[in-house]
């Protein structure tokens, strides 16, 4: 009987820890999403549109989940340093230059990246700030 109680307490606390961890992650995700949205509106929406629809051939949409997943590990670098190459988004070629945003701190980049990759039909989930920091240190 004693053994049984100890076992169930142990099991219970493991479950509690997992649940509370998940909760912490959901809370972080919500924070990132709401701050990320503000940054998006201020810095990105002019080109990429309110719903990530892009602007003609001048700026690509942010709705191509396949591209965003395939380029997951360089999104932070794209956002911080801009990009100037031929990108194929939804099967269309884009060649305009995206400007760099040196004024964005690592945490800002993380937040706006999490916002983009979890809006407009994307669902990549949470990426913590320290992971984004590491990516930013290794930009090519």
């Amino acid at each position: 009987m004693r053994k049984y109680i100890i076992h169930s307490i142990f099991l219970f606390s493991v479950i509690a820890i997992i649940v509370s961890c998940q909760n912490q992650e959901t809370i972080d995700l919500q924070n990132y999403m709401s701050n990320g949205k503000d940054i998006y509106k201020a810095k990105c929406q002019n080109c990429h549109g309110e719903n990530g629809e892009g602007l003609g051939q001048l700026a690509p949409p942010l709705t191509d989940s396949v591209f965003l997943i395939a380029n997951k590990n360089r999104l932070a670098c794209i956002i911080k340093n801009g990009v100037n190459e031929t990108l194929v988004i939804h099967g269309k070629e884009y060649r305009e230059k995206m400007p760099a945003f040196p004024e964005l701190a690592d945490i800002d980049v993380a937040q706006v990246m999490v916002y983009v990759t979890n809006s407009f039909g994307n669902k990549q989930g949470f990426v913590p700030y320290n992971q984004v920091s590491t990516q930013l240190q290794n930009c090519k």
């Binding site: 929406q45 002019n46 080109c47 549109g49 602007l55 001048l58 700026a59 400007p99």
Partner: peptide, 10 residues
């Protein structure tokens, strides 16, 4: 122009 022009022309 990377600031207001895209919004103006959109």
């Amino acid at each position: 122009c990377t600031t207001i022009c895209p919004t103006m022309h959109r």
